[in-house]
């Protein structure tokens, strides 16, 4: 199974830039109304565990919050590889750097180009790692925060967002014909705040199988992923 975890991937943007590969066979929005805030780590932790983790993750220490495999659906796979997954194998150094730059930007100590450059560099690193491990385990889950980070600073700049979405669409294209079950999921969506972007309470999901879902909750994918894991065992 392949899970592409795209931070802040938003349905309207996917449609706006006509990203067919991101849409796959079935796509739609997720419903996050059970959450007070759309916080990145909280939502990924909830996706991984099938439980609403909001109360368990204090905002002050959220970035370093860590789940054990037993708490997540990962335990259902014989072998798995995760790349940069928040609340699990999050690359602290890379993201700390990104947050630092974000702060510096608002303090007018860093330019938008410097911020963009760092996040693209981290993106390339994850991409390389992702494709080098593709097909080598029962589950591969790759996390990419390009749409979130670039979106926060430049959501209103169409050219930039187009570049981001085409890049993510290309990743989806490259896993299309692997024969694996592909789930594309985001933690939350994004809405415009002037030229900036803010988290919205609708995430995005898509699958290369017909699932027949209607506004699923992000915690609802836990059972689905486990069922797929069991099927894989069966077919193996």
């Amino acid at each position: 199974m392949i899970i592409l975890a795209f931070d802040a991937l938003d349905l309207h943007q996917v449609q706006k830039f006509n990203c067919k590969n991101l849409m796959q066979k079935e796509h739609g929005q997720t419903d996050l109304s059970d959450f007070n805030q759309a916080r990145t780590v909280v939502l990924w932790a909830s996706f991984l565990t099938g439980k609403n983790m909001e109360a368990k993750i204090p905002i002050k220490t959220q970035w370093t919050f860590q789940l054990s495999p037993e708490q997540t659906f990962l335990k259902s796979f014989k072998t798995y590889k995760t790349i940069d997954v928040p609340a699990f194998s999050y690359k602290q150094k890379n993201h700390e750097e990104e947050r630092k730059l974000l702060k510096a930007y608002f303090e007018e100590k860093a330019t938008i180009e410097e911020c963009d450059a760092a996040v693209w560099r981290n993106h390339e690193e994850n991409k390389k790692e992702f494709f080098s491990h593709l097909g080598k385990s029962d589950l591969i889950m790759g996390y990419f925060d390009l749409a979130d980070f670039i979106g926060h600073l430049s959501f209103g700049i169409t050219e930039k967002m187009a570049k981001v979405y085409h890049e993510l669409d290309k990743i989806a294209e490259q896993v299309k014909n692997t024969g694996d079950f592909v789930l594309i999921i985001s933690d939350h969506g994004m809405k415009a705040l002037g030229r900036f972007g803010d988290h919205s309470k609708n995430g995005f999901y898509s699958s290369n199988h017909k699932l027949g879902l209607n506004l699923p909750k992000i915690t609802g994918f836990y059972d689905l992923v486990r069922r797929i894991a069991e099927n894989e065992h069966a077919t193996n």
Binding site: Q37, I59, W63, L102, K103, F196, H199
Partner: peptide
């Protein structure tokens, strides 16, 4: 406003 939002989400 954006800064406030990002702060509330724990980015800064």
């Amino acid at each position: 406003y954006m800064m406030q939002k990002l702060r509330a989400l724990g980015y800064m």
